[in-house]
Amino acid sequence: MSTAEALVLPATRTSVTWRLLRSELALTFRRPRNLVMMAILAAVPIIIGVVIRLVGSEGDAGGMIAQTAGNSLMLTVVSLFVLVPLLMPVAVAVVAGDAIAGEAGTGTLRYLLTAPAGRGRLLAVKYLNAVLFGLALTLTVATAALLTGLVLFPAGDVTLLSGTTISLGEGLLRVLAMVGYVAAGMAALAAVAVALSTFTEVAIGAIAATVVLIIVTQVLRAIPQLDWLAPYLLPTRWTGFDGLLRDPVPMSEIWQSLLAFGAYIVLFCSLAWARFTGKDITS
C-alpha cells in the first residue's frame, strides 16, 4: 500500500460509514411503524398530564401526583417512570431487533454487503442507528412531557424527593441528565436486541425474544429470593434515574448503573460481531 493510498483510504472509509448511517437513519425515521410508536409514546405524557389536571387537583392526592400538579417539570419524571420499565424498551427492541434480521428476511442483506463497507461496519452502523432511535425516543417523550407540563401546570421551583427545593433551571438540567441516563439504558437494550437479531432471519423472532427477555427479567426482579440477582438485570438499572431527584445525588450508584450499561453493550456487541462476521449470508 502506497503512502497516498493510506492517506486517502481512512477518509473514504469514514464517509462510507456516514453515508450508510445517514441512509439508515432516514429509513428508520421515515418508517411509518417507528413514527407511530414514537407518536403513541409521546401521547402518554399528554394523557397523564390531562388526567392529573382533571382529577389530581381535587381531594388530598399525595406524592408524585400532588407534586406533578404543583410543578410542570415533574410530569417529565412521572412520564419517564411510567414508560421506561416496558413501553420504551419494546419500541427500541422493535427497531434494534429488526436491524440485521429484517434485512435478512427481506433478502436485502446481501446487497448491503456488496457495498464496500464490510460486515463489522454495517453492524456498527445498524447498532448506532438503534441507539440514536432510543435517544430520539427519549427526547421526544421528555419534550412532549415538558411542553404538556408547561401548558397545564405552574412552572417554578422544583421539590426533590429528599424535600430540597431547587430552581427551575437546575431542574431542567437534571431532566436533561435523566434523558441521557435513560438513553444509555436503552442503548444497552439495543445491544441485546441487535445481538439476537444476528441469530435469526426472522425479524419478529428477534423482537419477540427481546421483549420476552425484558418481561422475564421484570418477573425475576419481583421474586424476593432473587434479590442478589437484581443489580445485574437491566430493568433494575433503568429506573435508577430517580437518583437524580435526590439530594445529594448518589453519584456512585449512577456511575455503577452506567458501567452496567457499558458492560451489556460490550458483551452483546461483541457477541453480535462474532456471529455476524462469521455468518453464511444466504439471503
Binding site: 399525595g62 406524592g63 408524585m64 400532588a66 407534586q67 419524571v77 417512570f81 424527593l161 429528599s162 424535600g163 429506573t239 430517580d242 431527584l245 435526590r246 448518589p250
Partner: peptide, 24 residues
C-alpha cells in the same frame, strides 16, 4: 430511599423533621 420516593429524618439539635415524599 424507595423507588421514586424517599423518607427522611433530619435532626439538628432540638429540631427534628420527618419528610415523606410519597405522602408529600
Amino acid at each position: 430511599p424507595g423507588e421514586m420516593s424517599e423518607k427522611n429524618l433530619i435532626v439538628n439539635g432540638g429540631q427534628a423533621w420527618l419528610w415523606d415524599s410519597a405522602s408529600n
